[in-house]
Computed example of a mutant assay.
Amino acid sequence: MSNILNLFKKKEATLLFPTYGRYPVAIQKGQDYFLYDFSGKKYYDFLSGIAVCILGYNHPEITKVICAQSKKLIHISNLFYQEEQLELATKLQKFAPNFKIFFCNSGAEANEGAIKLVRKYFHSFKKQDRFEIITFSNSFHGRTLATLSATGQDKIKKGFSPLVPGFTILPFNDPEALKKHASNQTAAIMLEVIQGEGGIIPVKPQFVSALKEVCTQNDILLVIDEIQTGMGRTGKFWAHEHFDLKPDIITLAKGLGNGFPIGAVLAKPNIADALGPGSHGTTFGGNALACKVATTVLEIIEKNNLIFQAQEKGANLKQHLQLLQKKFPDQIKEIRGKGLMLGIELKQNAKQIWESLLKNGFILNLTQENVLRLLPPLIIETEAILAFIANLEDILSKQS
Rank of each mutant, 00 (worst) to 15 (best):
Q69G: 00
G232L: 10
H240M: 05
E176F: 15
V265L: 12
T186R: 04
Y57N: 09
W238N: 06
G113K: 03
Q228D: 07
Q206I: 08
D129T: 11
K254I: 02
A51Y: 08
K236E: 14
I101Q: 00
I300F: 09
Y57L: 06
P329C: 14
H123C: 09
I379R: 08
Q153M: 15
Y57T: 01
K333P: 06
N270S: 03
F167G: 02
E197K: 15
K126E: 15
E393R: 10
I201W: 01
L306N: 06
E369H: 14
M341L: 12
M1Y: 12
G337C: 08
A114V: 13
D273P: 03
C53R: 09
N316T: 13
C67Q: 13
G259T: 07
G199F: 00
L47T: 11
F125G: 07
S209D: 10
E381T: 14
Y44V: 01
Q325A: 14
P24E: 03
K268C: 02
D37T: 09
K313M: 14
L178W: 04
T147N: 02
T229Q: 04
V208N: 10
N370Q: 15
A187W: 05
V118I: 14
L342H: 05
G235N: 13
K351N: 08
F362L: 13
R373W: 04
F160Q: 12
L86P: 00
Y23Q: 10
N111E: 03
P97N: 10
L306R: 11
V371R: 13
F136W: 09
A182G: 05
L35Y: 04
Q309K: 15
D129E: 14
T90H: 12
A96P: 02
V65R: 03
K313L: 13
G263K: 01
M190G: 00
E312Q: 15
A108K: 01
N111A: 09
L252P: 02
T135A: 13
I379E: 00
W238H: 09
C215H: 04
I201P: 06
I133W: 02
K180F: 12
D154G: 13
I380A: 00
Q228C: 12
T282H: 15
F38S: 07
G286I: 05
I307S: 01
I220L: 09
G199Y: 09
K71T: 12
Y81E: 12
E84A: 11
N111V: 04
M341S: 10
H240S: 08
F34I: 03
G286W: 02
Y20C: 06
K236Y: 06
Y43D: 08
E12T: 07
D244L: 14
F122R: 01
I133Y: 05
S149D: 10
P202L: 05
Q93F: 01
M190E: 01
A89Y: 00
N305M: 10
S161M: 08
L5F: 15
I201V: 11
L392T: 03
L245T: 07
A89I: 14
K179L: 13
K246D: 13
